[in-house]
Computed example of a mutant assay.
Amino acid sequence: MPETAATVEFRGLRREFGPTVALDGLDLSVEPGELLALLGPSGCGKTTALRMLAGFEHPDAGEVLVDGEDVTRVPAHRRDAGMVFQSYSLFPHLDTLDNVAFGLRMRKVRTSERRARAAELLELVGLADKGGRFPHQLSGGQQQRVALARALALRPRVLLLDEPLSALDAKVRLSLREEIRRLQQELGITTLFVTHDQEEALSMADRVAVMHAGRLEQCAPPSELYGRPATPFVAEFVGTMSRIPGRLADGTVDVLGQRLPVDGPVPSATEVDVLVRPEAVRVRPEADGKSRVVATSFLGAAVRVTVRLADGTEVKADLAAHEAAELTAGAVVSVSLPERPVLVVERTR
């Protein structure tokens, strides 16, 4: 495994595909031994950035650095990076052991050494007894474990994961993301993980870089990203967020009959939307309330209650089961927010 974890830097990366700007001046640093998730919708540039680090794409402008060395034009086979793809990309004619050892074979490592190394990695990913099986004899989750072991066989300085779990079913996905995180922490390898699944990103990463239209919107630890989103896009892309109409005055916002301080930038417009998470919304039965419950759904530890305000706006609230017991569809309720700063954006409707 890597003796020292690598640092990675993207400096001003720009990449255009015809009229489409895939990356628009991306600046991003990855710390040694960190697992950083690149999160965003399709077409945001996250995979393009990963492929530039791998050496499969080259920028129109900007630089890629690993441990301070400019590798922007270094060929992929000299990048010292291991990559795991969405499709397992295993060789169907090779058994599991030889699939893992393939890169070592290409580097002309002695047979005994490469087979010992492959066996060690199969044990690491929990497949020690599957060395003689062929890909078609393995489940999807097992095949992806083999692909991960193969990527680690050459002891890369950087591990790159391009949506490696998206082809798997939900239960296997959950198990494998825990396994990947355990291995990454055990090995201390610098890792970039591309995903469009916010739950994967928030549960696995040390930091999450949210991308939109080729630009970096915010890079922060999961708790900060969720609790203090830097932009409206991050606020609404990460987790569930409701928009409640409000009115700005003197640096505070009037919303739901309350006056609350504003968190972050204050728009110049008077009419704004207040962005609130479901767990921050309070809903109580009230005979003369001005809102009405539209629907409820059971989420396990909580019940999600959808409420329609007097102006027709729908707001989601996550409540404990005992709090939601009386909140059946049609119930008349009051809605309020805690007395703390809220994020506001200019109203778009």
Rank of each mutant, 00 (worst) to 15 (best):
V307T: 09
T270G: 03
D273V: 09
V276W: 02
R277W: 15
G289D: 09
F298K: 07
A280P: 01
V294N: 08
R304P: 04
R284D: 05
A269R: 02
V281H: 06
R304S: 11
V283E: 06
S297Y: 08
R292L: 11
E271N: 06
D311Y: 02
V305T: 02
V303P: 01
K290C: 02
A269Y: 00
R308W: 08
A310F: 02
E271T: 10
R277S: 11
D311I: 03
V303N: 05
D288P: 01
G289A: 11
V305M: 01
A310G: 04
K290H: 12
G289S: 12
T270F: 00
R304W: 05
P285D: 07
V293G: 14
A302T: 01
V305P: 02
V281D: 04
V307H: 12
P285R: 15
P278Q: 02
A302I: 00
A280W: 15
K290W: 09
R308Q: 13
G300L: 13
L299C: 14
V272Y: 08
K290Y: 04
D311T: 02
P278K: 08
P278D: 05
L299S: 08
D311G: 03
D311A: 06
V272G: 01
R277V: 10
L309A: 09
R308V: 06
K290Q: 04
V276N: 00
G300W: 13
T306R: 09
G289P: 07
G289T: 04
V305Y: 00
L299R: 12
V307P: 08
E271L: 10
V307M: 14
E279H: 15
R292Q: 14
R308A: 15
R282F: 13
L299Y: 13
V281I: 13
G289I: 09
P285K: 13
V307Y: 10
E271Q: 09
V305L: 10
R284Y: 02
L275F: 15
V274G: 03
T270M: 00
T270R: 06
L299W: 13
D311K: 04
G300Q: 07
T270D: 03
V281A: 06
R304H: 01
V272N: 05
A269C: 06
E279N: 13
R277E: 11
A310L: 10
S297L: 12
L309P: 01
T270Y: 01
T296K: 13
E279S: 07
A302H: 12
S291Q: 06
D311Q: 01
V281M: 11
A295D: 07
V303M: 10
V293C: 10
A302D: 10
R304T: 03
V307I: 09
R304Q: 08
A310Y: 00
A302K: 14
A301L: 03
G289C: 10
P285N: 15
T270V: 04
A310C: 07
S291G: 12
T306N: 08
A302V: 04
V272D: 01
G300I: 04
E286K: 15
R284L: 12
A295S: 15
A287H: 07
